[in-house]
Nucleic acid binder design. Structure first.
Lengths: 253, 253
DNA sequence: CGGACACTTGACAATCCTCAAGATTTGTGG
DNA sequence: CCACAAATCTTGAGGATTGTCAAGTGTCCG
């Protein structure tokens, strides 16, 4: 019997424990001992769901917490001097938002819900304290931040070097991989962001995004029904973004 | 007398101690007590200088250390599937390279010297251990990584939304700010990278970079002599990149 | 001194943006 | 549940920015 010491001491608030969360394998608790997960659990606050369009934190606001998305999607953005919105990222369940606020205790970006979205709030000072006591937790935080740095650099390459087709294909494949990782279909999913938001993120005009998607459909690379996307010819899409077909690691942002 | 316990136990290798390093105010040791600086000092290895073109670490190589630039400049880049180089960053003295390797214990990029360059090697496992014992050091590492995330996101905005003029102006002002921070002239400096490398980094063709620089000179925004750059009309340059003139925080990458 | 490399400049072409109009979807109130 | 308004999305035409190609100049280093 493998259940020797896995019996939790905390049987209350079942649905909102890290141990019972289906995302824990992707989020922070990975590789933590049960008792450590419980300690992490205690510093985390589950918030009421955000409705579509609601703001989680505003650019310029004092930084206190990072947030893990549980359900739904967030976008982060900042407002430029000319007043327009600049989207810097989309966040799916299990992903952490707000890490860039640590630097000077202020969020340099805003975060807004693209649909009904629930998040776990992780007060950073608590996380920092706890990470001193749990080395593997500290390592996890370093890893998450490190991965974010690497991903952002891939995104820089995409923005700087790729054409419209490659940008849109990369975007779709990146989403595909993220869905796959958390057990959803890699080939069929729903875009929670508008074409305009995709274009804003990718550095393209809305019209260009629309045209590329239409062309992909005509060429039978994908099938589109509004925001529903099905990837039909995955190998061809991968060729588009420049991935060696047998290469395990997919290009991602 | 302020020298109560500041007398170092390590009087040897004077020139290579964090305490005596002019960069310590910008690098990791900031806000550490003297004794803690000494502990940090002991895990840091000073390496022989890299000659121009020498590689500090290769993409794909096992990750062991992060590196602080002491003198000179590094570029980081990766090689795309089509075989071309993609520059993801330039690193000046006091800046940390290699943080993106933490995630899966492999450097996802290569780092190469643009000129004769010296670095301090900081074995990450040691830094991680030490940071458990020194909370302010741990906080420093989090801050450095957080700042990198924020800076990279600004760079994404630059690549996605700005035109050639704005890109080059942002690049020059960013360098200007970084030089200023470490006590050098903010208006007169030497580019250690080629026009081609600037273009690669900014997502522009060499010819475009050259043309923009020539035009900036004709419009008396800057003065150029090969790799020597003088910023003549700083306010106008700032207007170009969209910075409110009295806004303390300059747009940077 | 010569060769390689970096930089500049011009002409042309391609990609992508802007503007505009129409179609479709979404949201809201009756 | 329907109807209408407001967004969002699509598609076309034309134009601007930037990339590509080509040639010439300048610079560095053996």
């Amino acid at each position: 019997m493998p259940a020797t010491h896995t019996q939790s001491r905390f049987s209350s608030k079942l649905s909102s424990q890290c141990q019972n969360c289906s995302l824990s394998a992707l989020c922070l608790p990975i590789a933590l001992a049960d008792e450590d997960i419980n300690r992490l659990d205690q510093i985390i606050e589950r918030k009421r769901p955000l409705k579509k369009g609601e703001v989680l934190f505003h650019q310029g606001q004092p930084f206190n917490s990072v947030f893990a998305v549980r359900t739904g999607t967030l976008k982060t953005f900042n407002i430029t001097s000319s007043g327009e919105e600049q989207i810097t990222g989309f966040y799916c369940p299990s992903e952490l938002v707000g890490l860039s606020g640590i630097d000077d205790n202020t969020y340099p970006i805003s975060a807004k819900a693209l649909e009904t979205t629930t998040v776990c709030e992780i007060p950073f000072s608590h996380l920092e304290n706890l990470s001193s006591q749990i080395p593997s937790l500290k390592h996890q935080v370093f890893k998450v931040m490190s991965r974010k740095i690497g991903d952002d650099q891939q995104m820089m390459v995409l923005l700087g070097k790729k054409n419209a087709d490659e940008k849109v294909a990369s975007f779709l494949l990146n989403l595909s991989n993220r869905f796959k990782k958390r057990g959803y279909s890699a080939t069929s999913f729903r875009l929670s962001m508008s074409r305009g938001e995709v274009g804003n993120y990718l550095g393209l005009a809305v019209e260009t995004v629309s045209r590329v998607i239409t062309r992909f459909q005509k060429n039978e690379l994908i099938q589109v029904d509004g925001k529903e996307i099905s990837i039909i010819d995955l190998p061809e899409m991968q060729k588009l973004v420049g991935v060696a077909p047998d290469c395990g690691k997919i290009a991602q942002f």
